[in-house]
Computed example of a mutant assay.
Amino acid sequence: MPNQALKRGAIPSPRSALAAAVPHAARIGAPPNIMMYPQKISMWGNDTHGDCVTAEEAFAKACNDPEIFISDDEVIRWAKAHGVLEGATLVEVLKAMQDDGFAGAGVTYDDGPYYSVDWTDSRILQSAIAAGPVKIAIAADQIEAAWHSTHGATGWFATGFKEDVHLDHCVSLCGYGSLSWLAQQLNVDVPAGIDGSKPGYGMFTWNSIGIIDQPSLSAITGEAWLRQPTTVTKSG
C-alpha cells in the first residue's frame, strides 16, 4: 500500500479541559510487559475522513475480551452524527462516547469515565496501559514516515524522532515492554542498529500496530487519556 491515503483530524483539547481532568494514579502490580493485539482491525474511515479520534475508539473496543469489532460504516455514521467526521478534540469524543457509543446488535458500546495520563512518567503510563488502551494526541509527520516504511503493514518501528508539538492526529497505545519483546509479539525483527533492550510501546494507527521507543513517544505526544473501563456495554 505505498500510495495508501492517510488522514488525520485531531485537534488539541482546550487547556481548560486538560487542567480540569482527573489524573490517573499509578497502580501497584502492573505486569512487566503487555500487548493488546486484536485479531481484526481496520482503517475505520481514517483513509477517507479525518476521523482518527473516533477510529481510535473502535480500536479500543477491539481490544476488549472478547473482541468487539465495530464496522467502518458504524464508525463513520457515529462520527458524522456527532459532528466529528473531519476533526475533533479527544475530550469531546471521550465525552460523547460515555452517553451515546457505537451501536451493536441490541446493545450500545459506550466509554467509561476518562482520566488524564502523564505520558512522561513511564510508571504511570504503563499502569494506565495495563488497564486499557491509552488514547493520545500526537504530531504525526514522523509516524506517517514510519508507517510508510512497511507500506502500512503492522510491525513498523518509530525511533530517533525529533520534538514536534504540532498535534494533529490521535492514536492508541496498546502495549509496552522492551523493543525486542514487542517485536516478538508482532512477529517482526528489530531493525539493525536499534537496541532491542530499550523500552518501547505498541501503537495503533491507520489499520496497523507499530512500535515506538520512549524518547520518540515523548517527542511527539501532547495529551493522553485512559477510559476506565474502556468499554461499557448497555442493552437496548
Rank of each mutant, 00 (worst) to 15 (best):
L173Y: 15
S172I: 00
T150R: 14
V165T: 14
A139K: 07
L125A: 12
D141P: 09
G196A: 07
N187P: 02
Q185G: 13
T150W: 09
A146H: 08
K198P: 08
S178N: 06
H166G: 10
S172G: 04
Q126E: 11
G175K: 12
V188M: 07
G177W: 13
A137Y: 00
L179V: 09
A158Y: 04
P133A: 08
G177S: 07
A130T: 01
Q142A: 02
D195H: 12
K198F: 06
I136T: 13
A128E: 06
W147V: 10
S180W: 12
A128D: 09
W156C: 05
G160N: 12
T150Y: 11
H169C: 04
A131T: 03
G193V: 10
T150C: 08
K135V: 11
H151Q: 09
W156E: 05
I124L: 04
W156V: 07
I136W: 12
N187D: 11
D195I: 13
A139M: 07
S178M: 05
V171W: 07
K135W: 13
H148N: 12
H148V: 02
L167E: 10
H166L: 14
S127R: 12
Q184K: 15
A183V: 03
D195R: 13
I143K: 10
L173R: 14
L179E: 09
A137K: 02
Q142V: 04
S149W: 02
V134D: 05
S197F: 01
G175E: 06
S197C: 01
W156S: 09
A158V: 03
P191H: 08
A128H: 14
S149D: 05
F157D: 01
V134W: 06
G132P: 08
D195P: 12
A145Y: 00
L167W: 11
K162Y: 07
G152F: 01
I143G: 09
H151Y: 14
D195G: 10
Q126I: 01
T154Y: 02
E144A: 14
G160A: 15
T154L: 07
D168C: 03
S197G: 06
A140Q: 02
Q142K: 13
G193D: 09
S127N: 04
G155E: 03
G175F: 12
L125M: 13
H151A: 15
Y176Q: 07
T159P: 00
H166T: 15
K162G: 13
V190C: 06
V190A: 05
H166V: 10
Q142I: 10
G152W: 00
L182D: 01
F157W: 04
C174M: 04
Q142C: 05
Q126N: 12
P133T: 06
I136Q: 11
W156H: 04
D168L: 00
L182G: 03
L182A: 04
K198S: 15
C174K: 04
Q185D: 00
G193K: 10
V134Q: 05
A139C: 08
T150P: 05
G132R: 07
C170I: 03
F157P: 01
